[in-house]
Design a protein around this nucleic acid. Structure first.
Length: 488
RNA sequence: GCGGAAGUAGCUCAUUUGGUAGAGCACAACCUUGCCAAGGUUGGGGUGGCCGGUUCGAGCCCGGUCUUCCGCUCCA
C-alpha cells in the first residue's frame, strides 16, 4: 500500500513537474479546463517532436521497404462503416441506479434471453434488433422493463434511461447548414490506420512498392472514451504513430513475430531498462485480428499498454474492396517454388504496429524523472533531473557564461551561433552557475557548457554532463561535434 | 456516469469560533558573485475555481456548478 502511495505521489510529482517546466498544460485552463484534453508547452512540444522524428526515421529511413503518408483526418463516412467502427462502437448503454453498474443494452438483453426457452428468446432478440436498428431508446428501456430484466448485482429493475455511447466524434461537412434529413456528417477519425488502407493501391503503385512493404503515418485521432483520465495516458484527442505492413498471405505469422521483436528493440534502443517492459498477448481478439499483443511499460501507475502489434489478416482491405467495389489486389511477380509460377493476384495480409505518441511521451517522462538526494554532512541538497535520452531531449546544449562581464557573454554568443543551426540550444547568463545547472537538469538538457576567463586564454570550456554532474575541460571548438555525436 | 476528497499568488501552504489575505520559494530590475539550489536591495503579482443564498459583514456557513485526484464502471 505504501509503495502504491509512493507511486501515486510520484505520478503526481511528474504531472506537476510537467506543468511547472512547460511540458504539458491542461487544455483551456483559464476556462477551468476541458476534460481529458491537454496542450504541449515549449519543452513538451520539442520532446514530442523528437519522439515523432525518432520513430519516423526508424520506420521510413532505416527500412527501405517502408514509406510514409499523411492522410486527412476527415474521411468518407463509408470508411467507418467498412472498418466496423460504426457498428461496433456506437452502443446504447443503461445504468442500474442501485448497483451503479453500467451495461451495454444488447449484452443485458442477450444475457436474459439465454435464460428463456428458445422461442421466447428469439422473439425477445428480434424485438431488440428492430429497436436497435431504429435507435428507439425509449422502446429498448420499455423492452427491458416489460421483460422484468434485473441487474445481476442489485437484483432490481431500477434503470436509468437508455443512452447512446458514441466512440466517434461527429461533425458537419460543408459550410451550409444541412437540410433536415440530409446525411452530411463526417467523423473525426478514431484511428489513423484507415487512412493507410484506403491509400494502399495509390501508395503501392506510385512509390512502386513490392510486397512485403509498409506504410507509416503519424497523426491525430479522436475518441470519446467513457472515462478519460490518468493525465495524458488516455485523452480524447491524441496522436498515433502507426505502420501497416502488407505481406503475402501465409507469411503473416513470421512477420508478426518479426515486428513484435523489432518494436521492442526500438524501445530498448533508447537505453531504457528492459525490466520495465513486457509483452501482453491478447486472448480475446478484436473483430479484425488474428493475433495481437501489447508492449506494456511499467508506469508509476503500473504496467500499461504503450504499443500494440496486431495481425489484422486481410480484413480491412477486403472490407474496403466490398464497400468501395474497387479491387484491392496486388499482383505478385515472385515465383512460388512449389508451383514454379508467380504467386499472382491476392489481397495482402496486414501486420500493424501502433504506438501512442502521447503515451510514449509519458513513458519517456516517467522513466526520466528522478529526485536525487545530494546532501552532505554540512549541507542538505537535492535535485530533480529528467534523464531523457540525449537524442530526445528538448534542449541539447545550454551555453552559460560564468559571469556576464569581461567579454564572457560575447564568447558564449560565438558558441551559440556555431551550434544553434545544428541542434536546440539555450543561452543564459543570469543567476549563480549552480542554479543554472539545476534549471537545465529540470528540463533534461544533457550538456551545459560554461565559458570562463581561461576560455579567453586557451579557448577551452567546461562541459558538464547532466546525469553524472561530472565536468571536463575541452576545447570550445570540439563542443559541436561532441554534442552531435551524443544525439546521433 | 456513480461514490469519496480537494480547489487561497507561477509552486508549496497558512489565515484558532465568519470581521474587507500572509509566508517561503519562484519571477523582474539593480548590486554582489570564479563551477552545482536557498548573498543584498527594490519591485510586480490574488474580485480566495465560478454562480447564487444566509448575514450589518463570507476565503470560512448553505445550495448549485466546473475542474482535478482516488475508487468503481467501460475500453481496440
Amino acid at each position: 500500500m505504501s509503495t502504491q502511495q509512493n507511486n501515486t505521489d510520484k505520478f503526481q510529482a511528474i504531472i506537476s513537474h510537467a506543468k511547472e517546466y512547460g511540458f504539458v498544460f491542461q487544455s483551456s485552463e483559464i476556462y477551468d479546463g476541458l476534460s481529458a484534453v491537454y496542450d504541449y508547452g515549449p519543452y513538451g512540444a520539442e520532446l514530442k517532436k523528437n519522439i515523432k522524428d525518432y520513430w519516423w526515421k526508424s520506420m521510413t529511413q532505416l527500412h527501405e521497404n517502408i514509406v510514409g503518408i499523411d492522410a486527412a483526418i476527415f474521411m468518407h463516412p463509408t470508411t467507418w462503416k467498412a472498418s466496423g467502427h460504426i457498428d461496433n462502437f456506437s452502443d446504447p448503454m443503461i445504468d442500474n441506479k442501485d448497483s451503479k453498474k453500467r451495461y451495454r443494452v444488447d449484452h443485458l438483453i442477450e444475457a436474459h434471453a439465454d435464460t428463456l426457452p428458445a422461442d421466447a428468446a428469439k422473439a425477445l432478440l428480434d424485438a431488440m434488433d428492430s429497436l436497435l436498428a431504429a435507435e428507439d431508446f425509449a422502446g429498448l428501456k420499455q423492452l427491458i422493463e416489460t421483460n422484468k430484466i434485473v441487474c445481476s448485482v442489485s437484483g432490481t429493475a431500477n434503470w436509468t434511461d437508455v443512452r447512446q455511447f458514441n466512440l466517434m466524434f461527429k461533425t458537419e461537412f460543408g459550410a451550409v447548414a444541412a437540410e433536415p434529413g440530409d446525411d452530411n456528417h463526417v467523423y473525426l477519425r478514431p484511428e489513423t490506420a484507415q487512412g493507410i488502407f484506403v491509400n494502399f493501391l495509390n501508395v503501392q503503385k506510385t512509390a512502386r512498392m513490392k510486397v512485403p512493404f509498409g506504410i507509416a503515418q503519424v497523426g491525430k485521432a479522436f475518441r470519446n472514451e467513457i472515462v478519460a483520465r490518468q493525465f495524458i495516458f488516455r485523452m480524447r484527442e491524441f496522436e498515433q504513430m502507426e505502420m501497416q505492413f502488407f505481406v503475402r498471405p501465409g507469411t503473416e505469422g513470421e512477420w508478426y513475430q518479426y515486428w513484435k521483436d523489432a518494436r521492442l528493440k526500438w524501445h530498448l534502443g533508447l537505453g531504457i531498462d528492459a525490466a520495465k517492459y513486457r509483452y501482453h498477448d491478447h486472448i480475446k481478439l478484436a473483430h479484425y485480428a488474428k493475433e495481437a499483443c501489447d508492449i506494456e511499460f511499467e508506469f508509476p501507475i503500473g504496467f500499461k499498454e504503450v504499443e500494440g502489434i496486431h495481425s489484422r489478416s486481410d480484413f480491412d482491405l477486403m472490407q474496403h474492396q466490398t464497400y468501395s467495389r474497387k479491387k484491392q489486389q496486388y499482383f505478385d511477380n515472385d515465383v512460388d517454388p512449389t508451383t514454379g509460377k508467380p504467386y499472382g493476384n491476392y489481397v495482402p495480409y496486414v501486420i500493424e504496429t501502433s504506438i501512442g505518441l502521447d503515451r510514449m511521451f509519458l513513458l519517456i517522462l516517467s522513466n526520466a524523472y528522478t529526485e536525487e538526494d545530494l546532501s552532505t554532512p554540512e549541507k542538505q541538497d537535492s535535485r530533480v533531473v529528467l534523464k531523457i535520452p540525449a537524442k530526445l531531449a528538448p534542449v541539447k546544449l545550454a551555453v552559460l557564461p560564468l559571469l556576464k562581464k569581461d567579454g564572457l557573454p560575447e564568447i558564449a554568443r560565438e558558441l551559440m551561433n556555431e551550434c544553434k543551426g545544428a541542434f536546440k540550444c539555450f543561452y543564459e547568463e543570469k543567476d549563480a552557475i549552480g542554479k543554472r545547472y539545476r534549471r537545465q537538469d529540470a528540463i533534461g538538457t544533457p550538456f551545459c557548457v560554461t565559458i570562463d576567463h581561461q576560455t579567453k586564454e586557451d579557448g577551452t570550456v567546461t562541459i558538464r554532463h547532466r546525469d553524472s554532474m561530472q565536468q571536463e575541460r575541452v576545447p570550445m571548438n570540439s563542443i559541436k561535434a561532441m554534442v552531435l555525436n551524443a544525439i546521433h
